[in-house]
Amino acid sequence: MRYPQGGGLTAERRAFRECIRTEAAAMFAAGRDNAVIAKLLRVSVRSVQRWRRAWRVGGQAALRSKGTAARPKLSESLFAVLEQELDKGPVAHGWDDQTWTLARIKTLLGRRFHKSMTPSAIAQMLRRHGWSHQVPARRAVERDEKAVAGWVRETWPLVEAPRRRSEPSSSLRTRQGSR
């Protein structure tokens, strides 16, 4: 179960797979055949062969999970600095409005930390640290809610086309009465 854009397994899936490898180690010690182990654990024979080689060299410790495959681009301390920069707002960094976009955050990462990340990786990193995706409500400052409600109640029904009533239909191409 891989994620797009080079992501890895979740912590739960890593722990689950480590349990399977631990079970395999017990079966290695019992002298079971690779094909039997693969069938019992529902994995490929090649995986069992690879695990057995690692087990012979390093024991059960060699089958433990080594954590995520890729290190994060930003350490926790650098992410704390990034959060401070984001809290300052886009205007403090030279943009005209108060909207943080992934492209702007990418630019900020390049300017401040000399790091380059894809927008999807940035979104993933922000989500991992508790940041949420928010869409600003685009409404005019001059908007009058009472006038809008009145228009919807009074004017819109006059503009909207009346709904057609459902009538019994005929399966023929022409209606019976039109012959």
Rank of each mutant, 00 (worst) to 15 (best):
S170L: 09
S170W: 13
S44M: 10
G177M: 11
A69L: 08
L108F: 10
K115Q: 14
R153Y: 12
L74M: 07
A25R: 02
R2W: 13
S44Y: 09
R56W: 08
A140K: 11
G67E: 01
A62F: 13
G110R: 11
H133V: 10
R50E: 09
P168M: 02
G7A: 06
Q84P: 08
S166K: 12
S170F: 06
S65R: 01
D97N: 09
R153S: 04
F113E: 00
A69T: 04
K88R: 14
A61S: 00
Q98Y: 02
A140P: 05
A35W: 12
C19W: 13
P72G: 05
Q134K: 06
I37W: 03
L108P: 02
A24P: 00
R46A: 13
T155C: 13
P72T: 07
R164Y: 08
P4T: 00
Q84A: 13
R71F: 13
G8N: 03
K146Q: 10
V148P: 00
H129F: 14
G94Q: 05
G89M: 09
H114D: 10
Y3L: 14
A15F: 04
G31I: 13
I20Y: 11
P90L: 10
A70P: 04
R143N: 13
G8S: 08
L158V: 11
M117Q: 03
A35H: 09
R128F: 15
E160Q: 12
K39E: 05
V81C: 06
N34R: 13
A61R: 14
F16W: 10
R153L: 00
Q124A: 15
T101N: 02
T99P: 06
H133D: 06
R112Q: 12
S166H: 10
T107D: 14
W131G: 00
R52F: 01
R164L: 15
R14E: 04
R53K: 11
L108E: 00
